[in-house]
Amino acid sequence: MTAAAQFLPAARRSKRMNPARWGLYAFIFITALYFLLPLYVMVVTSLKPMAEIRQGNLLALPMSPSVDAWVKAWTSACTGLTCQGIRIGFFNSVRILVPSVAISILVGSLTGYALSLWRVRGANILFGAMMVVAFIPYQLFIYPLVRVFSFAGLGQSLLTIVIIHTIFGLPTMTLLFRNYFASLPVELFKAARVDGAGFYQIYARIMMPMATPMVVVAVILQTTGIWNDFILGLVFAGRDNLPMTVQLNNIVNSTQGERAYNVDMAATLLTALLPLAVYFGSGRWFVRGIAAGAVKG
């Protein structure tokens, strides 16, 4: 961004190449290299047979590329007694993911909304306490939570794991929405109040539609966190609902078994496909000018 990038009305819409735009694309290209290098290593490793990997030429292209490792990772890698690859956990992960993401965002955005725009007594204390717990390694809560849930008669189930994800997502979701709502023009909220809209009406009709980009961020955050969660799913989901990451871990993390790095890489990439699809698909929701549109209403 140089001073030459004068902000002419046309410049924002046209894609004319000038020195500033060359600089821009160079920046994007170089940063993209840094981001893509590990991915490149993973992909080429996944396409090499083990004998070639043992040679240790990390960046070399595969001499005889093969998708065997991908097939094995998806359909036949052993994850214990069952040798059906990581696919067996895929639908469990989806069943955990969808309700967990939806409910945690709903609860988090409502909480953030109540804390930001409504002067509720003790809101600061509640928010502060939530911020503090957001910093605690959540693994510490496992023992006591196992006790709490078995005391409540929930034990291990899909419902339990959804509640668990909602609980652990609450602080960050609240933070995200509280800060976002607080940064919106307060006039919107005041106007709605004057019109006599109630708490939930303002939330559903005005605030959430304006928060679309933030909802996208929340979806990205929660999808990734929940999809990649391993230890909570292991402890709370019950053995019929074990997520895909348990299989991934079983393939990748063996202590004394021989290691097949090509299968490890393929399994990791396969596991990441869903969050990647979410990121890619989130594109059209990142649109500009909602706030302006809403004001003009």
Binding site: G80, I251, A260
Partner: peptide
């Protein structure tokens, strides 16, 4: 914790 090929065959 025996999950990989040889380990799984053993279990």
């Amino acid at each position: 914790w025996w999950t990989s090929g040889g380990e799984a065959a053993a279990v």
